[in-house]
Design a protein around this nucleic acid. Structure first.
Lengths: 214, 214
DNA sequence: TAGATTGTTAATCGATTAACAATC
DNA sequence: TAGATTGTTAATCGATTAACAATC
């Protein structure tokens, strides 16, 4: 991570897409690519691609372009995909189970250590060989086990209190699926997945375009 | 939807959050709010709130502020939440099932009509009283039933071919959970939920902040 | 009326695009 | 070397914030 100055959120949100497209090129045994050609595939301007990449270092070579494998690895490193994270899921309902079973998850270095729920019908069942624990044990569990990331899949009414327990016990990142904004100190990173917002935006765009006639 | 000129994506992506916060105020029996007070709750500047809302009409009143119920309803209408949409899910794996069982879904006016999968082990099972059909029937089904929105929850390798069938049969919106970018004509709206991108951004931010020491 | 708060214009800030010298 | 393509600066575009007259 070469250069200084704060990277803008706009750039950061494009990084995973670079990583994904470079991964595809790699699988196609393409070993070099110019910003112009990548631009045509990925849909960003060549100029933007060069600007974005230059936030992190001089990855390219004049007259040649970028080495695909190299750049893929570099961006993976920038994204922290070379690291390992210990995670817990709180909320073993539909979304919690889907996340737990989400295969890509482990591949990216996120290792699920435990799952919690408050529903007695779910406590005790096994998901991916992990027995669901009672949420009352969460606080104790987090004290006894160093966990990096907490995944919140509970209804919005309980999300903040679960987040508070996580924060109190030193969790550094929260992946929040509850449809609410969590309060957290600056040194705890919260990344939201708000499905209903996504759906509303789809609905808006459908109507805006006048495509949708009931 | 009063005013003209194209609304920017930045504004649109904030609309669901307005809707959510106004819904909360409503439940707390607060019936009027100024841009300043809303600003303190929602975390946007008062100026931005007034700018955003004015894209769609003059909802406020000088010296008074905004009527919560009114504004909530207006934004709901702008988002198309007063409409009903017929949907199908293709892919009855973890994510497909989670989406199918997602309660909020129906409440927003999205009515699930059918679920498809190609796995014989899943074909025939019932999810929310809907029997999973073989994906080979998708094309015929869409010809016989007018569906508004297709939800893609299949692995990325199959996403485009499913999308093609949907597009060919007149589906106007696609909610895409497959980690790939779909090709679609301009009159088909694609809204992506890329979970792994969200996770990568969390990972990046964790490392950037130097909070994460392995 | 006086006070409050909007709607809207102007100023600022930040992000994207264009251009081109540097250089492989 | 000549051609290609980067890294980077400057120009443009768009989004956010500030300011304030209009008005409830």
């Amino acid at each position: 991570m070469a250069k200084e100055t704060k990277i803008s959120m706009a750039v950061i949100r494009r990084l995973p897409k670079y990583h994904r497209y470079l991964g595809e090129l790699l699988r196609k045994d393409i070993d070099r690519i110019s910003s112009k050609e990548l631009s045509e595939r990925i849909g960003f301007t060549a100029s933007q691609i060069r600007q974005d990449l230059n936030c992190f270092g001089d990855f390219g070579q004049q007259g040649y372009g970028y080495n695909v494998k190299d750049l893929y690895d570099q961006i993976g490193k920038i994204l922290g995909l070379d690291k390992n994270y210990k995670t817990v899921i709180v909320g073993a309902g539909n979304i919690g189970q889907a996340v737990a079973n989400y295969a890509k998850f482990e591949k990216l270095g996120f290792h699920l250590q435990a799952i919690f729920d408050k529903n007695p019908k779910l406590v005790g069942i096994k998901i991916r060989d992990i027995e669901v624990k009672d949420v009352d044990c969460l606080d104790t569990y987090l004290k006894e086990n160093k966990i990096d990331i907490g995944i919140i899949c509970v209804p919005k009414e309980h999300a903040q209190s679960i987040a508070d327990i996580m924060i109190k016990n030193g969790i550094k990142g929260i992946w929040n699926f509850a449809p609410t904004d969590l309060n957290a100190p600056d040194d705890v990173i919260v990344e939201n997945v708000h499905l209903s917002e996504s759906l509303m935006i789809l609905s808006y765009r459908l109507n805006e375009s006048e495509l949708f006639k009931e």
